[in-house]
């Protein structure tokens, strides 16, 4: 991650008004943010907190009431900034009468890409998002997950430097969610900057370097995820194959040093991990019954510390 700021908002505010100019909602209040090159930045907040409004202001889909958004040093209203941006909206707003190839070709043309580059890029992206077998099917026949994937592909058609993802895991099943998160991490590894907004906290925690928490249009917290989540006065020790004697010794050591033991037990895995294990196993060994899978998992699982 470099210090180069690719996205900046300065006292960015948005007031929604009715036809007569009367104030309806103050959606965003004087937001100051900076996103640096190469980081994954999360905008967090409950529904109506101003996340999507912020993203739309950055993209120039809305005009600020006050303040300004600057992307790559240019104002948000400057269309040329879009050359370096990819955007995945909350719902994949795509032309449903086009198929995957036509969709990506169309968006490629909007970037004024030459035909040969376009063809290569379309092919690579369709394979990358796993829609190779459905490339000729019109989008109206796609499932929600497939639509999200083609939506992501269109956001990446120009190999953007900054990718804005609005609720990227919305509507995806756990596998799709994991793939989306893997994709975000991969983009970060490629040096891309990702700004995502979500109210699914676990997703944000998994992939974001820094987050901003918004509530009722105001910035409430901003910082690195690991710093914000670290509980400074608690120490966590994990071990494997510890005997009861060993565990007792640990308790004694803590007591000798006047520490307070909060808990010592076997942790549980996450439901997401369990689900993904089952699906992976099912794909590797199709036809096995669920009960036997569960039993096998139980017997195969190493004892937890």
């Amino acid at each position: 991650m470099s210090d180069e700021v690719v996205l900046q908002t300065r006292a960015l505010s948005k007031v929604y008004r009715d036809f007569w100019g009367r104030q309806k909602v103050r959606a965003l209040k004087a937001l100051d943010l900076e996103v640096r090159r190469g980081e994954v930045f999360g905008l967090l907040g409950p529904n109506g907190s101003g996340k999507t409004t912020t993203m739309k202001l950055v993209l120039g889909l809305l005009f600020p009431t006050e303040g300004e958004a600057v992307v790559f040093g240019r104002p948000a209203s400057d269309v040329s900034k879009n050359e370096r941006i990819g955007y995945l909206p909350e719902e994949s707003y795509l032309y449903r009468f086009l198929n995957a190839e036509e969709t990506l070709d169309f968006y490629g043309r909007l970037f004024d890409m030459p035909a040969s580059t376009r063809a290569e890029r379309v092919d690579a992206l369709i394979k990358q998002v796993g829609l190779d077998k459905a490339r000729k099917r019109p989008l109206q026949e796609y499932s929600k997950g497939m639509t999200r994937r083609i939506g992501l592909a269109q956001a990446l058609i120009n190999d953007p430097e900054l990718i804005l993802l609005d609720e990227p895991t919305s509507g995806l099943d756990p596998i799709g969610t994991r793939e989306m998160k893997d994709m975000i991490i991969k983009l970060k590894e490629q040096g891309k900057t990702v700004v995502m907004c979500s109210h699914l906290l676990a997703d944000v925690q998994d992939v974001c370097d820094r987050i901003a928490i918004l509530h009722q249009g105001e910035l409430k917290e901003l910082g690195r995820v690991d710093e914000l989540l670290t509980v400074a006065d608690v120490t966590q020790v994990k071990g494997r194959n510890l005997t009861p004697e060993c565990q007792n010794e640990i308790r004694e050591v803590i007591a000798r040093h006047h520490g307070e033991l909060l808990s010592m037990d076997n942790p549980t895995t996450t439901l997401e991990e369990l689900f993904l294990d089952i699906v992976r196993d099912s794909e590797a060994r199709p036809g096995r019954r669920a009960a036997s899978v569960a039993a096998a998992n139980a017997s195969d699982s190493p004892p937890s510390s």
């Binding site: 889909l61 269309v79 941006i85 707003y93 795509l94 909007l110």
Partner: peptide
């Protein structure tokens, strides 16, 4: 209405 315009105007389209 269908918001498909979002994915068009966020490209470098004048």
């Amino acid at each position: 209405k269908t918001k498909t315009i979002y994915t068009v105007v966020t490209k470098p389209v004048r």
